[in-house]
Amino acid sequence: MSRTTAGRDSARAARKPAVCGARRLHGMTAPHRSTADPLGIWRRLADASVLLDGFHALKHALRFQAHVPVAVTTGRRAALDLADELAPDVRDVLETLLTEVSEDTYRALVPRPHPTAVAALAVRPSREANLETLRRSPRSAPVVVLDNPRNLGNAGAVIRLAAGFGATGVVTTGTLDPWHPTVVRGGAGLHFATVVERLPVAELPPGPVFALDPEGEDIRALKLPDDALLAFGSERTGLSAELRSRTDHLVSLPMRPQVSSYNLATSVAMTLYHWSATGGASA
């Protein structure tokens, strides 16, 4: 994390009232650390839970009301010091929640150890509630649609962007699981700050589809509506024929001649920024 980002986190936290205890923040009923069996809880829940890989993923999940039954670290004191510095709003919850484990135990639980040596399991949000949010009309912010994305890291970066801009959600089509641990890691736990689901093209939420395509109308001449579906094709093959047939408007981003394309997350960032800068709802 950059110093600028860390400063913003601290500033936001300073403006919030202190949170006293896990129950007030996210409704969990975890017992005190001395009576809990965190490793037993972990092994029992791992297959059906969302892996929060790293301090920042856990921090964001707690801020956005995730239910986190168990969290571990190899350095409890260091993790709480990090909370004091970057996330004092969740520090009390972390003090109750975090259990210190050995390096060997941590590495056995987490396939790709994070530099902060913190990991947790969270309950995935209700699919039914997510679909209800996506289908709500009118919406106050667009839905980002990733049409058959291929790169897990790109998908995570897009979810992080969508959360930052206050988008209604991110929907993926195709085979990529948007809740894959690598995607959640790339999204820094911000899956819990927006709606994240996978749907076939035929079941996309209602709303006009604005799809990014080099042959489309220059985005600078358009105002993107709040209830739009902002669709982005695969990094390798672009928009699928099925998604293209559903599209209402093709939109292009300004690009210097002989430059072939932008990174997927960059394209999403430019599009969401254009939406917000031309009258979109404030994040």
Rank of each mutant, 00 (worst) to 15 (best):
L62A: 12
L25Q: 11
L45S: 12
S240I: 04
V158P: 04
L253A: 08
K223F: 00
M28S: 14
T74I: 07
N151Y: 13
L239V: 07
L134C: 09
R12K: 07
R160G: 08
L97Q: 04
V68Q: 07
F232G: 07
E203I: 00
A11H: 10
L272N: 03
G207H: 05
R150E: 14
T96H: 14
L131S: 05
A155T: 15
G189E: 05
Q65M: 00
E85Y: 01
A13K: 01
S102E: 11
S252D: 07
R220H: 11
L152E: 11
G164R: 00
R24H: 07
Y262H: 13
R76I: 12
V183R: 05
G75A: 14
A122M: 09
T29M: 10
L229N: 08
P149R: 07
S234E: 06
G75K: 01
Y262F: 15
T237H: 15
L161H: 06
Y106F: 15
G27Y: 05
R91V: 06
A211C: 10
V143G: 04
A66H: 06
L94C: 07
S276T: 05
T29A: 14
R3Q: 13
V170A: 09
A87M: 08
W275C: 01
D104G: 12
E215W: 02
P208G: 02
D9W: 15
S126T: 09
A13L: 02
G7E: 14
E95T: 13
E217C: 04
R63T: 11
P69V: 10
A193M: 03
M270V: 13
E242G: 00
R8H: 13
M270G: 00
G7M: 10
R136I: 01
N148Y: 06
A71Q: 03
P214L: 11
A6E: 12
V118W: 02
A14T: 08
L212M: 14
G238F: 08
M28L: 00
G233I: 04
A265C: 08
T168V: 11
L121M: 08
L51Y: 05
L161R: 00
S261P: 10
V50Q: 06
W42V: 08
V183L: 07
L109R: 06
A14L: 12
V110N: 04
S102H: 01
R12V: 14
S126I: 03
R8C: 02
E203F: 01
P115W: 06
R33D: 09
R244N: 02
R136T: 15
A48E: 15
A14N: 07
G156M: 12
G153P: 04
S245K: 12
L98Q: 03
P17K: 11
A221V: 00
H26E: 01
K59A: 14
T173S: 08
